[in-house]
């Protein structure tokens, strides 16, 4: 085998391999991790987070504005402390509320932010005070049945 032909083939192979990696990186995947320098963190506390997981998206008006960085259980208040890492480009008022939503009926869960009216913006390490827990399907069904039973009960 001629050395230049061999070199050529190996060169083509390496180019093709890197092209495939580039294709995977650009076309197939996306970087979800918001880098620390371009983001700020806020904490929201929930009584129940349902099936929320780290790295789940944080959306406002349906647009992804950040990711769930960390989920922790606070053993003093018996609440879940969810750290949200938000993109620096987006500023939210101090009285913004956070809720745990589900995309579709059985889809993945995400944190939805609803902007308030405060003139001051949320800063790094701030806490979101108004939160709405995840809807737990079993509780909902339980309430529904209980309600029906109440209705049907003789007055």
């Amino acid at each position: 085998m001629n050395k230049t032909v061999l070199d050529l083939w190996v060169g083509l192979f390496v180019i093709a391999g890197f092209a495939a990696l580039l294709f995977l990186a650009l076309k197939v995947g996306s970087t979800s991790a918001v880098s620390a320098s371009n983001s700020y963190e806020v904490v929201a506390r929930f009584d129940n987070i349902g099936g929320l997981k780290p790295r789940a998206p944080v959306k406002s008006a349906g647009v992804v504005v950040g990711r769930v960085a960390d989920i922790r259980f606070d053993n003093e208040t018996f609440e879940a402390a969810v750290t949200l890492r938000l993109d620096k480009r987006y500023a939210f008022p101090k009285d913004t509320s956070a809720g745990i939503m589900t995309s579709g009926l059985l889809g993945e869960q995400y944190v939805g932010l609803e902007a308030g009216g405060d003139s001051e913006a949320l800063k790094d390490k701030d806490r979101i005070l108004i939160t709405q827990d995840a809807v737990v399907l079993e509780n909902l069904i339980g309430q529904f049945i209980y309600g029906k039973a109440q209705e049907g009960a003789p007055q």
Partner: peptide
């Protein structure tokens, strides 16, 4: 097809770990 793929495949978690 492409947008669903892009939104749920993470570069670091999935592609880099595969590499």
């Amino acid at each position: 097809f492409w947008s669903q793929m892009k939104s749920s495949v993470d570069f670091e978690q999935d592609i880099l770990n595969g590499v």
